[in-house]
């Protein structure tokens, strides 16, 4: 086995087992930590594909910012294993059926498609210089449109977060 394959299998096993840990652990804080570990494994895969920029941005944005906010909320809500509400039978049953249906769809889609092996010699498209050039020449329109989307999301968040203006003047 080459170095590449060893790393690939190590990262794959890590990603899958940590992803299982996210849904199987009872403590929500542990779930968040498992999710962070999953992001690290996926970043490792990006590095293997020579997409260093994507790998580090994945860590900065997801592990460094979004997961911190998740952790924030979970810590403030003080969720513990013993306070987790018990779902009733009907909800559990519905969950199993819908999950199973999704699994079936994915399985059917994967069965007919031909899975290509990953190229052993990755391209240089993931390096920051090439990525930037591609984004700002070939894909400039989708790129700008998505940034407008982000801007609108930001403005929306500010509008929701703003305090409601007092409609009635309070008593002096």
């Amino acid at each position: 086995m080459s170095t590449y394959e060893i790393l690939f299998w190590f990262l794959t096993v890590m990603a899958l087992s940590c992803a299982l840990g996210v849904i199987l652990s009872r403590n929500p804080v542990n779930s968040v930590l498992f999710l962070i570990a999953t992001f690290f494994a996926i970043s490792g895969h990006y590095v293997l594909m020579n997409a260093q920029f994507l790998a580090i941005v994945n860590i900065i944005v997801y592990a460094g910012a979004i997961m911190v906010l998740f952790l924030f909320v979970i810590m403030l809500m003080n969720l513990n294993a013993d306070t987790e509400p018990q779902k009733n039978r009907l909800v559990q049953f519905a969950g199993v059926i819908s999950g199973g249906a999704l699994f079936l769809v994915v399985l059917a889609a994967l069965r007919t498609s031909s899975v290509n092996m990953l190229e052993q010699s990755p391209t240089d498209i993931g390096l920051i210089k090439n990525l930037g050039k591609t984004l700002f020449t070939q894909f400039v329109l989708p790129f700008e449109i998505s940034s407008v989307l982000f801007l609108s999301a930001m403005i929306g968040a500010v509008v929701i977060g703003k305090k409601e203006e007092a409609t009635t003047t309070p008593n002096p």
Binding site: V29, I36, I56, A63, G64, V68, L71, M75, I128
Partner: peptide
């Protein structure tokens, strides 16, 4: 000498907060 040196520093710095957060919680 990685081509994304500064971003690496940012990544590590943004992870630095976990030590404090987990310890405090």
């Amino acid at each position: 000498d990685i081509s994304i040196g500064i971003l690496f520093i940012f990544g590590v710095v943004s992870l630095g907060v976990y030590g404090v957060m987990l310890g405090g919680w």
